[in-house]
Design a protein around this nucleic acid. Structure first.
Lengths: 342, 342
DNA sequence: CATGGCATTACAATCGGTTGCGTAAAAATC
DNA sequence: GATTTTTACGCAACCGATTGTAATGCCATG
């Protein structure tokens, strides 16, 4: 069976010194003599000592852990964010606990509570599709545990958030499609209550308006951007008379599925219908024609969010002063939307 | 600032009972009276009590947490595994800490150690590309902490592992390509020391042998299956004279990139070169032609691995009795390899 | 030789649940 | 009504590291 754990008491007894000295020695506290420190470290190694995070966290009243709640893990974007966050938190000596909600509010709330009980020192979160309020974060707010939202945030909340300018991106994509001569632009997106989709839609709407193109509600398709939904959306597009001349999808994978179905039905891309996606996933360069999209700097968002949190935890800045941080983003034009050669 | 934490002592004082009763009451121990239990739970809610995992874990000497080490997070396969694992661990009341190595042995070792210090009750792991030995898991073995490997495992080790029959899959794919009339089959794969690639290669080799096709070392391309490497591999294929008539890539994304480059150079798929991938990622149905591949039951592997671990932890079975669990897998034939119509 | 200063180390309380064991009271048994 | 059994709860010792404060020893200074 499991052997007895080695503790600082064992080290202390072994060396004939006190546990406080051992504790300080292991923390490299300069107050303990260099030689003693070395002896402690050596003894620890030799005895097979392992640090007990529980005892430490219990006593110190902090976990040295940051919680991360994401809506999904399966996109390039989110793994980039993860990389950015990890880079910063690891460097700052924090551990990271990742929880994902699979786009479900229920799971998100459960994870939020769980991480609260795990006593994370801070939280970074991207909300699920159907999250409508932030009441499940209330315990954090009450206890003064910092929470930073990124990408999928709640609008009109005065919590710190790191986002891109979704409105501008939506506007840019639409403007680009219009400049390619498109006038009947379908917009396939998800729950408009979620900021990223709502804002992009507003950009789309305003771009149409500014170009004197009437908004046609029939061209707005809201679904969950899954493979199945995307296929159905593509079929629906085919049934619209006259055929639309562009599709702006707020997700690259969904756009790829659309392109596929449209092509299967003899529609030429971008000749008949120009298509644009969102996120700049790896898939963009695989589909034919290659997909116009918006590049979304995941790694930067992750780094910025994590750095803000870490700085706050170390007392270097105060989150209450910064509300929204907007990260640059960029329209990337590829063949799927190019109808005019300049 | 952070208000003082509410503890079971506060609840006890409030109700004029002892902490032991409170503790038992909160655990729903039937030994405490129903009414008292209700009073405790109510008081806890009212006072804003939150359970302290650290105190509990410290005392109980267990974390109720399972560690998961994966090589990456960005594939469909791995997120399926994750879903399977989560389903089981959540149901069994365990928390999950996910760590990913980004295919780096160094990070894998660091994560392994970190989870060890976090005192996970058990570990589920899929190894990185370049992991050659299991010495970083030694602390677990020494302490008797169960470790289950899945997918990317170390061969010839007598640790419990959950895998598919990679040899058979490699054989099947190759056999299928041969049956389509291919004779010069390129094999693009990664580090052959890693079981999944080594076994598939052996299947490839044996299928060739059994069909009387000589093994041509020039047709074996080993790289890291990244986008860049796949492009280079495709260009390399184009330079082989005479042109090969099939490519078996051990990763769908890499296969997709290859197809793209080959097509750009006027190669017809599958007419000139038949292509097969591995994993049955969503991308398979996006590329043109749709990609022949091997379906890999991620969710099952996750469930099986997690269930074995959980059962072991609960004392329901003993891992030392089960060594290797093989999960079913299936060749999925699509247009990218179909040269003959039956 | 006494005293002050500095460098080291020890003492002991503390963090918040958990649990074996003991006991009191209530219920059941004869 | 006495005794046994049940039910319900309390006592107190843990788990292992941290840290404010006190104490020790040493050297230097006057």
């Amino acid at each position: 069976m499991t052997k007895k754990e080695v503790t600082i008491y064992d080290i202390a007894r072994n060396l004939g010194i006190s546990t406080s000295t051992v504790s300080r020695g292991l923390q490299n506290d300069p107050v303990v003599n260099k030689n003693t420190r070395k002896k402690i470290v050596d003894a620890a190694k030799e005895l097979g000592y392992r640090y007990n995070n529980f005892a430490s966290s219990l006593r110190k009243q902090q976990s040295n852990t940051i919680g991360l709640i994401v809506h999904e893990l399966n996109s390039n974007f989110i793994t980039s964010v993860l990389a950015g966050i990890e880079k910063v938190t690891t460097a700052a000596g924090y551990d990271l606990i990742i929880a994902h909600s699979s786009e479900s509010y229920t799971k998100e709330a459960a994870n939020t509570l769980n991480l609260f009980h795990k006593r994370v020192d801070g939280l970074i979160a991207s909300l699920a599709f159907d999250t409508n309020d932030l009441s499940h974060f209330q315990p954090y707010f009450d206890k003064g545990i910092p929470v930073i939202f990124f990408d999928r945030v709640e609008e009109n909340s005065n919590h710190t958030s790191v986002v891109i300018d979704n409105y501008k991106c939506g506007y840019q994509v639409t403007q680009h499609l219009i400049e390619q001569g498109c006038k009947r632009i379908v917009h396939i997106t998800a729950n408009l209550k979620r900021n990223v989709y709502g804002q992009r839609y507003r950009g789309y709407k305003d771009a149409l308006f500014d170009n004197g193109i009437p908004l046609d509600k029939k061209l707005l398709l809201v679904n969950d951007l899954s493979e199945k939904a995307s296929k159905e959306a593509a079929l629906q597009i085919l049934s619209i008379k006259p055929l639309p001349d562009a599709v702006f999808v707020t997700n690259d994978f969904a756009a790829a599925v659309c392109i596929q179905i449209l092509k299967e039905h003899g529609v030429s891309i971008p000749g008949d219908i120009a298509v644009a996606g969102f996120n700049n996933d790896a898939i963009c360069k695989i589909v034919e024609p290659q997909l116009t999209t918006v590049d979304y700097p995941g790694i930067d968002m992750g780094e910025i969010a994590a750095r803000s949190l870490v700085n706050h935890l170390k007392g270097l800045n105060n989150l209450k002063q910064t509300n929204t941080i907007i990260v640059r983003s960029e329209l990337i034009i590829r063949a799927s939307s190019l109808r005019k050669t300049h």
